[in-house]
Amino acid sequence: MAKKLALNIALVAVVSIVLLWGNTLYRQHVQFDKGEKAYAAGDFVGAVAGYDAAIHMYTPGSSLVERAAQKLWEIAEVCERSGDVPRALVAYRSLRSAFYGVAGLYSPGTDWIAKCDARIAGLVQRQQGQR
């Protein structure tokens, strides 16, 4: 009897985890698609929000996290090259904070965080020098 109960509890736990993972992965795809559509339309705020949210829907093994991070980095670099420092800072900070937001027992994106910290420091210094 106790064995059957333990098996049922384990089965319910596994099914729950699979459903949670699947739901999160689905929402990650939805947010990434929103970012893609906004980026294609030239909507800076929508693109940053979509890619940021896709990273926040972190699921182990999903390639979308890396793709969303790359897109945010690309947006930030485009803004930086065009001289739009405030928007570049928004994109770099969004990328950095997205990875801070998903940190737990494991901290993904530490390389992205380090890259963003370096760019943010340089841009802030540049911005202060212009004042």
Rank of each mutant, 00 (worst) to 15 (best):
A53F: 02
A53P: 02
A54Q: 02
A54P: 00
A54V: 01
I55R: 09
I55N: 13
I55S: 12
I55T: 10
H56Q: 13
H56D: 14
H56T: 03
H56Y: 05
M57N: 15
M57D: 12
Y58W: 03
T59L: 13
T59R: 09
P60K: 03
P60I: 08
P60L: 09
P60F: 13
P60C: 08
G61E: 15
G61T: 09
S62L: 04
S62M: 04
S63R: 10
L64G: 03
L64W: 09
L64Y: 12
V65S: 11
V65N: 14
V65Y: 01
E66P: 00
E66N: 15
E66F: 07
E66H: 07
E66Q: 11
E66K: 04
R67W: 09
A68F: 13
A69Y: 07
Q70G: 14
Q70N: 15
Q70D: 15
Q70V: 10
K71V: 05
K71R: 14
K71F: 03
L72R: 03
L72V: 00
L72Q: 06
L72K: 02
W73P: 01
W73D: 15
W73V: 05
E74M: 06
E74K: 02
E74G: 08
I75Q: 06
A76P: 00
A76C: 02
A76F: 01
E77P: 00
E77S: 08
V78K: 11
V78F: 11
V78D: 14
V78I: 11
E80K: 04
E80P: 00
R81H: 12
R81L: 13
R81F: 08
R81S: 12
R81I: 00
R81Y: 11
S82Q: 15
S82R: 05
G83Q: 06
D84M: 01
V85F: 08
P86G: 07
P86A: 09
P86Y: 12
R87Q: 15
R87P: 00
R87Y: 08
A88W: 04
A88K: 06
L89D: 11
V90L: 07
V90C: 05
A91T: 01
Y92D: 00
Y92F: 01
Y92T: 01
R93K: 13
R93T: 04
R93D: 12
R93W: 06
L95K: 06
L95W: 11
L95V: 08
R96V: 06
R96C: 08
R96Q: 14
S97C: 06
S97Q: 14
A98S: 15
A98E: 04
A98M: 03
Y100N: 09
G101Q: 12
G101H: 13
G101N: 06
V102R: 01
V102G: 06
V102N: 05
V102S: 06
V102P: 07
V102K: 04
A103N: 14
G104V: 00
L105H: 12
L105E: 08
L105K: 09
Y106I: 05
Y106A: 10
Y106M: 09
Y106S: 09
Y106D: 13
Y106V: 09
S107E: 10
S107A: 15
G109V: 05
G109F: 04
G109S: 05
G109R: 03
